[in-house]
Design a protein around this nucleic acid. Structure first.
Lengths: 169, 169
DNA sequence: ATCATATCGTTTGTTCCCTAACGAAATCAA
DNA sequence: TTGATTTCGTTAGGGAACAAACGATATGAT
């Protein structure tokens, strides 16, 4: 059985791309880093959907919305959209889908007739209790090849990127 | 003027999430790492689309297809889809959009009547020559807060994750 | 030569995602 | 109090994403 963990070689795609743009004035290291962030992101997204989410009629986006509701409790739509990183128009569709499957519900705001409150149903809460550890296990599986110190270092570097892109108020 | 680079503190979202799941048996470091990979990915995607791509009637996916065509030359559809990490059905739609805007074109395969060859038009090639350095500049902007050695280390760790998820043939 | 199977690109149907426009409700001004 | 503006959530339209099914073509076996 071949040992495949701790393989740090370039992927095929990375190698070909590197060769092709070698003549241009390009920062290869920056390109490699961002490209690999994308690949990990897409890979995790697909794995999570196929292995755990779709069998519950849940898209990754739907799971994200449920997760935010689970962590923050009931929320108003515009906050929820902000937190999930999507627009309010998109959120309307996702919450409608979640409502159709009985995972979330909309309520009227007690004092403001324009606003709606979104919250988990009992069914949605139960689903999250079951699903969250599963997703976390997948996260562990993804980073299993990294040493503990490396893992912390990875998060730290990503945070540097995130903070550097913070909108200046 | 506040110095905001090299900020390695947890984001607000990370803090709240951490507190909420503290009681559960959860690997916080794995959760933080994957979550932050996602945030960087979404952030870059949105910035690239809004600042450089949409003005050319190009989606991020469309740009990806164009990029692969630019690097690999003309390709058959099924290879192109594979390389872009999307399904062939999705690729049909994207190539149709690219064709509509004159960036790419479909040709018949010389010997196999089922296959199609996709390639850049002159207009598409010119667009990539202009766009690629711009995107690379955004990549540099994103990782500007990292020291050169850290940047290399970041790519290395992401590759470990990618290779660990390689499908076993 | 014929029939069965496999492969390739497209189409179909659902969901997601955005921007832009809209109606309802709240707020503010005069 | 009336009228204008702002702030909500929803809707509309287009592109993107997937799986599944569908023709057309190629290839294989008999």
């Amino acid at each position: 059985m071949a040992i495949k963990s701790r393989d740090t070689s370039k992927t095929i795609q990375e190698s070909i791309a590197t060769t092709h743009v070698a003549a241009l004035d390009v920062d290869m290291d920056a390109m490699a880093a961002i490209s690999n962030v994308f690949r990990v992101s897409v890979l995790f997204h697909n794995q999570a959907e196929k292995r755990f989410l779709l069998q519950h009629k849940l898209s990754f986006s739907g799971f994200t919305v449920l997760w935010v509701l689970w962590v923050f409790g009931k929320m108003e739509s515009y906050q929820l959209a902000e937190e999930c990183g999507i627009t309010k128009g998109t959120l309307t569709g996702i919450v409608s889908t979640l409502e159709k499957h009985g995972f979330a519900e909309r309520r009227a705001h007690p004092s403001d007739g324009r606003r709606r409150l979104v919250r988990l149903t009992r069914k949605g809460d139960g689903l999250m209790k079951k699903l969250f550890p599963t997703i976390n296990a997948l996260e562990q599986e993804f980073v299993a090849g990294l040493k503990p110190a490396e893992l912390v270092e990875l998060s730290r570097m990503l945070r540097i990127i995130l903070h550097s892109q913070d909108p200046v108020p």
